[in-house]
Design a protein around this nucleic acid. Structure first.
Lengths: 194, 194
DNA sequence: GATTACCTTACGACCGTTCGGAAGGTGGTT
DNA sequence: AACCACCTTCCGAACGGTCGTAAGGTAATC
C-alpha cells in the first residue's frame, strides 16, 4: 500500500536529513510516484511528518513493553544488561528509533508541542516500567538506593550511550558502555566485592 | 564588526533551526544588512557554517580547559560535581554549546567529515583531561575501577544528562542528575558507607 | 455514479548565489 | 590642497532552482 510505503520512506528520509532537509520530491520518487500524488494520502508535509512521528512513538513504546514482557523471568542484572545491549544494537538497524530520537531532540519549531508530548509519553513509560522492575528486585539493591534512583540512573546512562551512538564511533561506544555499565552496577548492587 | 556579528547571529540561528532550517535572509536582517552582503565576508552559506563551527569547537575546548585549570586545588568529588553543575547550567545560557551539540549530533551530510573531526577533537580532549584528573586522585577510587573507567563513565553520565537538557524538562533533569550522580559516586569511590 | 489513486500542468514563494555599481575611507602623487 | 587609484562594505536587481501546494483530468474499482 502506497500510504504505508510513503510513511516508511518518509521515516528514513526524515531520520537522515531532518524535517527541512527532506524533500517531498525525493520521498515520492523513492516510492515510485510523483510528488503531487502524496497529497492524495496526506494533507501536507507537516501532516506526513507528524503522522510518521505518532507511528514511530507507538513503535518505540511497543518495543520497550515487549522487551520487559519477554524478559520477566530473568535476573535483574541479566535484564538490564540485555536491554542495554539490545537497545544500542537496535539503533543501528532500526530507522524508526533514529527518526524518533532526531525528532525528539530537534523538532521543527512549528511542532514542538506535539512532539514534546509524544516523546514525554515515551520517557514516562520507560521510567515507570524500569522503576517497577527495580521494585520487584529491590532486595538486590543497596539500602540507600531506591528503585526510582536505580531506574533514572540507568536510563541516564542509556541516553549517554545513545549520544555515543549518534557520534558513531563503534570502538568508543564499546569502551564506554562496558565501563559505564560496570560503574553503574557497582553503584546500585547490594554486596561489595565481586 | 559585521563579520563577527554575522558569525554570532548565524550561531544562534543554526543552533535553533539547524543548517537547512536557517535562512541567510533572516541572519542578514538580524545583523542589519542585506542577504547579498553576507557574500562580502563569506564565500557561501557552507563557508559561514563551518567557520562558525570551527569557532564553536575552540570555544568549547577552551571552556573545559579553563575549568580544569581553575579547579585543580579542589577535591575530586568537588571538581566532578561542580563540573556537572556548571556544564549543565552552561547549556541553558550558552548558544555556543547548543550549536556545537546540534551540529555534532546531526551535521548536514555534505560536511559530516569536517564536523566529525572537530567534535572528536573535543571528545578526545575531554576524555584525556578527565582521565588525568582521576589518575591524580586514584587513591580515592575503588581498586577495581581504573582512571579511564571512572572518566568514561562520568562522561557518559554527562552526555545522558545533556539529552535530558535537550528534552527541556527542568524538574526531570534535576531528579536525574541528582540520582545519577549518587549512583555514579557510589560506583567509583573507595570506601563503602557514607 | 461515486470514490480512489495517480497523473500532468502550473503556481507563488523562497532559497542560495552572482553581478554591477554606489558610497565611503585610505594612501600616494602631484 | 587637490586629485587619483584602490579597497572595503554594502545594496538593488536578477538568476536558476527547489520548495510545498493547488486544480483538474484520467483511468480503475466498487
Amino acid at each position: 500500500m502506497t500510504y504505508d510505503q510513503l510513511k516508511q520512506t518518509a521515516l528514513i528520509q526524515f531520520a537522515q536529513l531532518g524535517y527541512e532537509g527532506a524533500s517531498l520530491t525525493v520521498i515520492a520518487n523513492e516510492v515510485g510516484i510523483k510528488k503531487q500524488s502524496i497529497y492524495t494520502h496526506f494533507k501536507s508535509k507537516d501532516d506526513l511528518y507528524i503522522q510518521t512521528f505518532l507511528d514511530a512513538t507507538d513503535c518505540e513504546i511497543d518495543f520497550v513493553k515487549q522487551f520487559v514482557q519477554d524478559h520477566q523471568s530473568k535476573t535483574l542484572k541479566d535484564v538490564l544488561f540485555r536491554f542495554l545491549t539490545e537497545y544500542l544494537n537496535r539503533f543501528e538497524h532500526n530507522d524508526n528509533m533514529k527518526f524518533f530520537m532526531r525528532t525528539s531532540f530537534y523538532p521543527p519549531v512549528q511542532h514542538e508541542e506535539v512532539i514534546k508530548t509524544g516523546s514525554n509519553k515515551f520517557v514516562d513509560r520507560l521510567e515507570s516500567l524500569f522503576t517497577a522492575l527495580f521494585e520487584q528486585n529491590s532486595d538486590e539493591l543497596r539500602n540507600d538506593v531506591t528503585a526510582e534512583t536505580a531506574a533514572l540512573a540507568f536510563l541516564t546512562m542509556l541516553d549517554g550511550l545513545l549520544v555515543e551512538l549518534i557520534y558513531g564511533i563503534p570502538e568508543r561506544l564499546q569502551k564506554r558502555s562496558k565501563q559505564s555499565w560496570f560503574v553503574y552496577w557497582q553503584g546500585i548492587r547490594k554486596e561489595s566485592g565481586e
